[in-house]
Write a protein that binds this DNA or RNA. Structure first.
Lengths: 257, 257
DNA sequence: CGGAAGATTGAGAGTTCTCAATGCCTGTGG
DNA sequence: CCACAGGCATTGAGAACTCTCAATCTTCCG
């Protein structure tokens, strides 16, 4: 069975048979984490690379006074910590938001993956997109009020999930409490609640029982001022975006954060 | 003459003679930009990779109502847009903050650089650190008030500049107006001004004439709650931090900052 | 059915923003 | 060398947005 990483890489580049063979190795060591459990802690020096196979997780950092800031959401196909291939230790933690399955890849396997040009290239693409997502997150926190902020995050998740086929007619699962949403957006849970109410009243979106309903995505996008270009998703018409010059076959899809 | 990229890479890894020879090529096509000029615009599809050689620049994004959010400061040795090696177009702009010299590297040269294992590895390290800086930026915007926010940014710049020898006894050049500082921190220039005044009154730091004075960096750090671990700087004793296990040649690299 | 976590709602306090006026500095032209 | 213009820095006052503290209601589960 094709795991999420395979789908993700395939949506970016053309994988060869040997690539696929190697990628099969990835599913060999799988571990499960319960919801709200840490997958990796700040300061850890993991000796495996972790890959999300199922469930949601988030990157987060805890400050002095115990406040938490979430810096990214991880969904199946996202790596938790490519960092540790190069950096000495984790500078943030990763926690499971739902029950989750995580593949543990040995350093050796990771190296083999990276030695495959097509895979390496796809991973690089994904990492650049992730960086764009981080920048968008900064813009969201720095320049938008709570209303636009929430709407924008939902638009982003909508776009990303839609892109990997996890969307059903204007609705999707969002396994987050209002508090977690606040930790991601730099808001208190109380304020998240009030703004959510306002979004609901204006019929822009509804969050109920870990589920998001969006009656009219275009209207939500325009009132949120959402511009998906940073996700570099393949446009409907555009067969696929293409790097300006070089002749690399590399399209879109996002990931992480 | 050794340009900033060489110093930067050398501080990360041991460069061979052929590496150095290749890096000499980097200085062949240099262009200058006046202060406040765009180096690259949002949406551009540059066919060269740009490298900062001298001066400061910033990544930024302009929103609907014209508000600007700065997402990174670029100093000599930082790449402006490794992205375009893979992604189709810029999803943000880059502007010179001071007069700046920028090296233009052809795609071909860029490819040759990436083919060098040591250089690729160093670039990848830098890119991972940059990602950590982006996450720290998010934490700063999401969970700190204006006072800690400004103090933290200054602490970070202090640490980074100190690390590359651009610091002189508790003081350094910061070629930013209060408005630009606000654009980086998600604050209005008026509020930046008031908080700067408070920081000055408490003798934590002074910003005057594009220059930062820090009487006691440890005090500033502790009141700011600054934790430099995300910069992964070489500790004084520790020759260099080192990845837990292996050392492999790797591909990618990413951007700047 | 009882508990506990999460969602709601109200009231009051703080932080940050907006609008505006004024002061300071630097570079230019006379 | 001095006057003036324009950009930036300061300061004041009031408005807006978010937060804190608390109480109450719902929903989920054992």
């Amino acid at each position: 069975m094709a795991h999420p990483l395979i789908s993700k890489l395939q949506s970016i580049g053309e994988l060869g048979d040997d690539d696929l063979l190697l990628l099969e190795e990835v599913g060999k060591d799988i571990r499960r984490f319960a919801a709200r459990r840490d997958i990796i802690r700040d300061g850890d020096k993991p000796d495996h690379v972790h890959l999300m196979l199922d469930g949601w997780a988030c990157r987060y950092k805890i400050l002095r006074e115990g406040q938490r800031q979430i810096t990214a959401f991880l969904v199946p196909g996202d790596f938790c910590d490519v960092h540790i291939t190069m950096l000495p230790r984790m500078d943030h933690g990763i926690g499971a938001l739902t029950a989750a399955s995580v593949a543990f890849l040995s350093r050796d396997l990771m190296r083999q993956l990276i030695d495959r040009p097509v895979i390496a290239r796809a991973l690089w693409w994904a990492s650049l997109v992730d960086e764009g997502v981080l920048r968008a997150w900064i813009v969201n926190l720095g320049r938008r009020d709570a209303f636009e902020r929430i709407a924008n995050l939902i638009c982003e998740l909508h776009a990303r999930l839609n892109n990997v086929g996890l969307m059903a007619a204007g609705a999707f699962e969002l396994p987050l409490t209002q508090e977690e949403l606040g930790d991601a957006l730099g808001l208190t849970p109380v304020h998240v609640n009030r703004v959510l109410k306002r979004l609901h009243e204006q019929e822009l979106m509804t969050m109920r029982r870990q589920r998001i309903l969006i009656p009219d995505i275009d209207r939500l996008r325009s009132t949120a001022g959402f511009d998906p270009s940073y996700l570099h998703l393949a446009g409907p018409g555009s067969s696929r975006e293409r790097a300006a010059g070089a002749g690399a076959p590399l399209p879109a899809m996002s990931a992480t954060r």
